[in-house]
Amino acid sequence: MDKNRGILIDTNLCDLCGACVAVCPEDAIILQERNIEVMQDRCTKCGLCAAVCPLNVPELL
């Protein structure tokens, strides 16, 4: 599992508001009509998405 360590955004908890997408320096988050996904290969685990989220959804694994 080690190489899958990264950021987890649970679509069920997320409101799809896009604040995390706005701060992500790596353009690593895809936000669609009904789901959100982190491209783990781009993510540097900087934690900014977690730091801005109004609902505290993104989790560093």
């Binding site: 508001c17 896009g18 604040a19 997408v21 706005a22 320096p25 353009d27 936000l31």
Partner: peptide, 21 residues
């Protein structure tokens, strides 16, 4: 919108600092 990626696709860095949002 705020979640814009179009700028990034065109090479513009639109990412916000925490103090900018």
């Amino acid at each position: 919108g705020v979640e814009s990626r179009v700028g990034r696709w065109a090479g513009i860095d639109t990412s916000l600092k925490l103090r900018e949002i």
